[in-house]
Design a protein around this nucleic acid. Structure first.
Length: 691
RNA sequence: AGGGGAAUAGUGUAACGGUAGCACAACUGACUCUGACUCAGUUAGCCUAGGUUCAAAUCCUAGUUCCCCUGCCA
């Protein structure tokens, strides 16, 4: 269903109800009139953004766009041990790139909310923490990390801390010493005084501050104590006046904490004018900047702070994909891939390099919807989203991945002894007639795809074979007559004749206007004299298993043996002029993208063209005759069962042939075991595995 | 054991007491100067068991299954 006509998802329903109820009165605080809501994306700069983050970014940005709100990018940089400037830079770059699909960004366009750093709020957070201590809601605890672990208790057994009832004045003094660096790392922490018996372990007096002596990318060495996520996050949202703080499902257990901290800060504060999520009042901030700074340490002095609403949704997961930062880091550091931007990586940087468009990623995110159901999306849907986008946008070109010589023996020769060069019209994009045509040279000495020729064709092979007439795309009909072979018997050259009456690739028409001669296959080609060499990198999915690690518990066990194949291709010279990142379709092969390794486009002469295959075209061929675009192995029996391929997805049925026969009989199915349809396969699997 | 969530075709996702739809995948076929695109059709679903109701995917009760939670990570 098109996004425009789809009913609102559950987050949108919440927002709409809030707007209808006038719950968030941002109008007073925001000079940019009419803003009734605000969202944010809060990455920790400890890794690269990936396609999972894209769903969150698209959700938050789309919400701001739909409801006339704003969208913030905020770095949740409260742990200097893991965070780096490199990640900040990459995230900013990737954010701008992705949100360009919405025509704006966090810092441009009508929905720009701004760029923020949690570390800019450390002063304010520190002041609030002191306030909590004064109210008896927090205390300095001198238990070591190990001791806290031992004393955390269990279900039905409360946690303990001997420091829980320390007088506020004493905690205040120690907390100040912590801040000034008078205590060693890990020596003590500030803990919230909540409930040591809570069945929700997050509430068993969680740590608010720890001592960490690490260089911070933003604050340098200004601090040696750092706030924990739960303490910091609600205040970050509060200061930025985020209305709907959208996060993933695993934070549901943290929501009580999120709310507790904001209430704790507000306890005893003066009620203000703006309404909060709880229907109470918030400080009148007219005149206050929407962008708080570190100088706001004691602001607001005595008024309640904004209480954002946390909402959880199910994150995006993909089959054949590993998305945890920890595991992705391992792929990078152990050399499984060439870097964070390796085109096989599900990072936004990797996808951009591979040829993915922001629009395709946005389309996928909108297509899968927003719910609280823990779900895994078929990777083919991502690929389809790209195909869909590029089919409309990408210009067409020709190139051969595995060249085989094709000689047109009756092609005319000009008086100087050289073959005639015929400049033919090539349609730039059939989906966009307005894109027009361009000229391609044809001189009778060509290169074709090795897979497009078979000496003897079966009934389902439409391409070149001895005696089988085929169309060369936009050129002529040709009929192979014979081949040359090398000593090993391999075909080295195909010789054919052409029909001058078919120039442009049109079939001759009879008097009734109908084609008198039809041809089943159309094949791409390139003039051997005019083509240029290109290194083409063909990617397969990194993992062979639908759910990496499911079988053995170790995702590394499911790494595909080979996910990169490099071929020496010959492509149209036009492509050497393509800018880095330019995408186009190589007809009948797939969509390709100019890799940065090619060097800049302005230096055409010195350029070594490198192309990435972003995605193949769908292969609709029945039977074994297809698979030109795909390099996937054909289905066959494995050691532990039989593997069936449906489209691009392989499924294995771990069943003996005999047992499979029995199952088919018991299900009353007449299907041949060698050729199950997906529906039949699913039925069998359900019968055997119960799911 | 305790707490927090979620269950609708193979995969996702609608329905908000009133005919279980849609997308993707699969399968047929049509069209086609890309075995692409496009178009038409087919297969296939409410976790289970009770209850309320004229009527239940929806409300109630009891189960079942799956996910998250005992970092000084986020």
């Amino acid at each position: 269903m098109p996004a425009a006509t789809r009913p609102p998802h559950f987050v949108e329903q919440i927002v709409e109800a809030d707007i209808a109820a006038g719950r968030w009165d941002l109008g007073r605080a925001e000079s940019a009139g009419g803003t009734c809501m605000r969202t944010r994306f809060p990455p920790e700069p400890n890794g690269y953004l990936h396609v999972g983050h894209a769903k969150s970014i698209c959700l938050n940005y789309a919400l701001a766009m739909k409801y006339g709100g704003r969208f913030n990018l905020r770095f949740d940089d409260t742990n200097p041990a893991k965070e780096e400037q490199e990640y900040v830079d990459s995230i900013v770059r990737d954010m701008r790139w992705l949100t360009s699909a919405f025509g704006g960004s966090f810092d441009s366009g009508p929905h720009a909310g701004g760029l923020y750093f949690a570390s800019d709020y450390f002063g304010f957070m520190y002041a609030c923490a002191c306030d909590l201590i004064g109210k008896g809601l927090a205390y300095v605890c001198e238990l070591s990390a190990a001791e806290v672990g031992e004393r955390r208790g269990s279900v039905g057994v409360p946690a303990t801390s001997p420091f829980r009832d320390r007088p506020p004045a004493e905690s205040l003094k120690l907390f100040d010493e912590m801040r000034r660096g008078e205590h060693a790392d890990g020596r003590m922490t500030l803990r919230a005084r909540i409930d040591l018996e809570s069945p929700n372990f997050n509430l068993r007096d969680p740590v608010m501050y720890r001592i960490v002596r690490e260089h911070h990318h933003n604050t340098g060495g200004a601090w040696c104590i750092y706030p924990m996520y739960d303490w910091a996050h609600g205040l970050e949202d509060s200061l930025e006046r985020v209305t709907h703080s959208v996060c993933t499902l695993e934070f549901e257990n943290h929501r009580p904490l999120y709310d507790w901290f904001v209430r704790a800060v507000n306890q005893g504060r003066r009620a203000g004018v703006l309404r909060t999520s709880e229907g109470g009042a918030l400080a009148d901030r007219s005149g206050q900047s929407a962008a708080p700074t570190s100088t706001g340490a004691d602001w607001p002095p005595s008024a309640e702070v904004w209480h954002s609403q946390q909402i959880e949704f199910a994150k995006l997961q993909l089959t054949y994909t590993v998305l945890s930062k920890r595991n992705m880091l391992k792929m990078v550091s152990s050399g499984i891939v060439r870097g964070w931007d390796d085109p096989r990586m599900p990072t936004l940087s990797g996808m951009r390099r591979r040829g993915y468009t922001p629009g395709a990623i946005r389309a996928l995110c909108e297509d899968v919807g927003v719910t609280k159901v823990d779900s895994v999306i078929d990777l083919v849907r991502l690929e389809n989203a790209l195909r869909d986008d590029l089919n409309r946008a990408a210009p067409r070109a020709m190139g051969v991945l595995r060249p085989l010589e094709l000689l047109v023996e009756n092609w005319p020769v000009s008086p100087d002894g050289k073959p005639v060069v015929d400049m033919l019209d090539f349609v730039v994009n059939p989906e966009r007639p307005g894109a027009g045509t361009r000229k391609v040279p044809f001189d009778g000495r060509l290169l074709i795809e090795r897979d497009d020729f078979m000496e003897t064709a079966g009934a389902d092979f439409f391409r070149l074979a001895i005696g089988q007439e085929v169309r060369l795309r936009w050129a002529y009909f040709v009929t192979p007559t014979r081949v040359d072979k090398d000593a090993s018997g391999a075909v080295t050259r195909v010789i054919c004749t052409y029909d001058p009456a078919t120039r442009g690739g049109d079939a001759p028409h009879g008097p009734d206007g109908k084609p008198v001669r039809k041809v089943r296959g159309t094949v791409h080609w390139i003039s051997a004299a005019h083509g240029v060499p290109a290194e083409v990198r063909l990617y397969e999915r990194l993992f062979a298993a639908e759910f990496p690690g499911q079988a053995t518990g170790n995702w590394m066990d499911d790494l595909a043996p080979s996910s990169l194949e490099v071929v020496s291709a010959v492509v149209e010279p036009l492509l050497t002029q393509g800018e880095v990142g330019a995408t186009f379709q190589l007809e009948r092969l797939g969509y390709f993208c100019v890799d940065p390794d090619s060097g800049p486009a302005r230096d055409v002469a010195a350029r070594k063209l490198v192309l990435n295959r972003a995605v193949t075209l769908k292969d609709g061929a029945k039977g074994a005759a297809g698979a030109l675009a795909s390099t996937k192995p054909a289905s066959g029996a494995g050691p532990s069962g039989k593997t069936y391929s449906f489209g691009q997805t392989a499924h294995t049925l771990k069943l003996s042939k005999e047992r499979l026969g029995e199952v088919l009989v018991s299900l009353g199915m007449a299907a041949a075991p060698e050729k199950l349809t997906q529906a039949e396969f699913d039925k069998v699997r359900k019968h055997v595995t119960g799911r």
